[in-house]
Each structure stands twice: as C-alpha cells, then as structure tokens.
Design a protein around this nucleic acid. Sequence first.
DNA 1: ATATTTTTTTAGACTTATCTAAATTTTTAG
DNA 2: CTAAAAATTTAGATAAGTCTAAAAAAATAT
Lengths: 217, 217
Amino acid sequence: MHSFTEENYLKTIYYLATRMEGEVSTNALAEMTATKAASVTDMLRKLSEKQLIHYKKYQGVRLTEEGERLALQIIRRHRLWEVFLVEKLGFGWDEVHEIAEELEHIRSDELVTRLDAYLGNPQFDPHGDPIPTSAGQMPETGYRKLSEVKMGELVRLMGVLEHSTEFLQHLNHFQLTLGCSVAVTEINTFDKSVLLRITDDRMVFVSHEVAKNLLVD
Amino acid sequence: MHSFTEENYLKTIYYLATRMEGEVSTNALAEMTATKAASVTDMLRKLSEKQLIHYKKYQGVRLTEEGERLALQIIRRHRLWEVFLVEKLGFGWDEVHEIAEELEHIRSDELVTRLDAYLGNPQFDPHGDPIPTSAGQMPETGYRKLSEVKMGELVRLMGVLEHSTEFLQHLNHFQLTLGCSVAVTEINTFDKSVLLRITDDRMVFVSHEVAKNLLVD
DNA sequence: ATATTTTTTTAGACTTATCTAAATTTTTAG
DNA sequence: CTAAAAATTTAGATAAGTCTAAAAAAATAT
Ligand SMILES: [Mn+2]
Ligand SMILES: [Mn+2]
Ligand SMILES: [Mn+2]
Ligand SMILES: [Mn+2]
C-alpha cells in the first residue's frame, strides 16, 4: 500500500506534467508540495524503486503507467468527494478543496463505486474539472480560456483553472457561476480586461488575470 | 493538532475505561491497539504531556476532561459516518466499521455538523450504539443483554456488543435485525442457550455466546 | 517475609518524512 | 569554451511511532 505522502506526490507530478512540456523538475515539486528539494529527491528515489515514476538523476521525472493509474484514481476520489460536499452537504465550491484533500486518501474501492453511483455518476466536479473514469481515463474537455475568446462571441462558463478560495469567492461576488452564458462585448487593448454580458443581461467587468482562469465552451 | 495515532489511543482508552473499573492498563492498551507495551508507554508519556490523560508510572491511565471530549468527538464522527455508509450508500452493517475507522479522522467541524444534519440528526448508529451529542455527551441507553432476560419476556433487539464482521453476518444469517421483537420462549439450563420467537413468528435458536452480545430494550 | 511471576518502563535501534548545509551536476552567460 | 549561476543530489540530523531486549516495579504465591 502507499502512504498519503506518496499519493500526494503522484498527484502533484500528474498535475505538473499536464502543465509543462517534458519531465517534471525537482524544484517544481518542492514548491508545489511546500517542501525542500532535498526531501523531494528522497521521495523520487522511493517512488522510482516502487516503479511508479521514471527517474534518472538530474533528468526530471515522469509517471509510469502504474503511477498515472494511481494518480488518476486519487484525482477521481478527490473530485467525487467534492461533488458530494457541494451537492449533498451544501458546501460552497470555495469551501471543499481542503476537505477533499483528506477524503481522497480513504482506501476503499467499494466506497468510491457506491459514492459515484449515489451521486449519479457525475462527469464534472464543482469546479468544472472532469472526473476520471473508473477505468482510469481522464476525459478530454475542449474548453478554451475566456481570455482567448474573440470579441462578440457567445460562450458558456464551464470551469476554472485557479481553485483558490479567494478566486472562487471573487467569482461568487460577481455571480459568475458555472453554466452561465457569457457574451464578450468589449476587450480593452490596454490591459486586456473584458466586459461581459451574462445570463440575465447583467454586465460584468473582469480583468485579464480573471479571464485567463475561466474556461468556456 | 493531534495525529491519527493519538486519536486512536484516546478512543481506545475511552473504550477500555467503560469496560473495566479503575484505570486502564498498559497491557490492555497494547493488546487493543495491536502494538507492544513499550510503544504504549511512549505514547502515554506523550498524551500525558499534552494533558489528555492522567498518568503516573505503573499506575495505569485515565482520560482528562479534554481527553474525553476529544474521544467522544472521534466516536461521534465514527458513528455518523457509519450511518451515512449504511443509510445513504447502502453498505451492510457488517461492512462499514473499517471504512469509518478512516473517515473518523477527517478534520472539519463544519463537515460533521453538515453530515449530522444531512442524516437527520440520528441518535444511534447502525449497530445501535448511541451517537455522542455535538455538546460532547454520550447518551445513556438502558439496554440489557439478551442473556439477562427472563423466560417469557418480550423485548426488542436494540444493539450489539460485538462488532466483528463474522458476528454481524451470523445475525444476518438468522435475520436478526435491529428493531425486531424477540420473545424468550425457552432457556436451556445446560448451556444457557435460548430459543426465541421473533417478529414474524419465526423461531430462532441462539447460543449463550450470542445472547451475551445482543442488547435489548 | 521472601521468592517468583507478571507488568511496566527504559535503553537502544529502525523507518518514514522531513530539514539544513555541503557537494555535485547541469545550464547559462560571457 | 570556460566561468558563474542554478538546479539537484548527498550527508548528516531530527521527530513520530514502532520494535526487541533488558531493567525495574508491582503483584502473587509459598
Ligand atoms: Mn480540489
Ligand atoms: Mn475541484
Ligand atoms: Mn464501528
Ligand atoms: Mn458502530
């Protein structure tokens, strides 16, 4: 069996691998896991011995098939629990990440199977992230960033890239919720900020920084 | 904050304290936690420093008020999660203990509050054990053991003392479920085994060993 | 009351995950 | 192509929780 710590490293390697080309670096992992590079090196040696990663000294790291399978399993659990917390217990989408960080490590395949069924086999978590299938596939979403949408286009808000409480509460404040339709009515060339017309004709003004973290369909 | 291990020791001390008069012994704890006496002594010193137990060398151990508060909080979480697993996810009462052993350590008061409300503020878990209140009180149940019931009495099955999968499956096999009414129609003097007439007039024969582990009203 | 047995604690060691400081390798710049 | 900078690994420590073996205290039996 694998420790919580090992599971968190696998998840982090998966996350970084999707966001950078090539291998994942020791320093990037140290920053993400809030540890020091030396600690990361120790763990990489261990994960490598367990054949969960491909690792050559100084050359960065990549998940093996088994490592990726495990990472996706943990991400699946995390996202299913987030759905539970929001849909069944009524938590806000800005409140569930930390709790799911703990729940994702509960070891019981039967539990995940039943939870999935109980939630109605959801395809997306409360942040619009796709839930890996029980077979271990990460579904592809063709979403673009709102910051890449052309003037005049009409799109729907489908997910967020940034998951911090502060960002999500910022969206709450502007009543920008997943599923709402968004028309790009103005793009300022100076700072790339955008003016949106959303579902009930309300106008919302968002910075480029925000637009870069919104995914649309 | 307290580690999983510390929480498990507190819970075990609480459990043993309710089942033996006086202080809890090092050896009893070692047996229950499946560790060695030497390891227990180390942990007792640590819990004592944290003021969670009263401990004098060679004199056994007793929970402080704070220690008992924590123990009851963990038991509350355990039993609420068991209700969730049985009532919402459809697990059998013989399948939930191990999973609840992990879920009970998830740290979020808000989670417990919402879970409790979602479950309809249940008073008992799937094994008939009372759920400690949010204020930290363990409700009293006036249950007797079935083995103490007199011939001819009519009672209701309210709980079990033994929680092992094997025992619970044994009860499943005889369709002895919580809430069913039980008339003691015969008590054999030789081995104290009992013949019961249960809800739908079915006759069930149980050993003294089983009767000692059934709680009735 | 003393000797024997049982229980408990101490001493010293191991594992996991972490750290700091130093050494080494790779990358980048001149 | 070398020299400086950056990234990474190694060396040596620490803390939590566990273990075995040995010592000490308490309980039990003669
Ligand atoms: Mn999350
Ligand atoms: Mn999420
Ligand atoms: Mn249980
Ligand atoms: Mn129970």
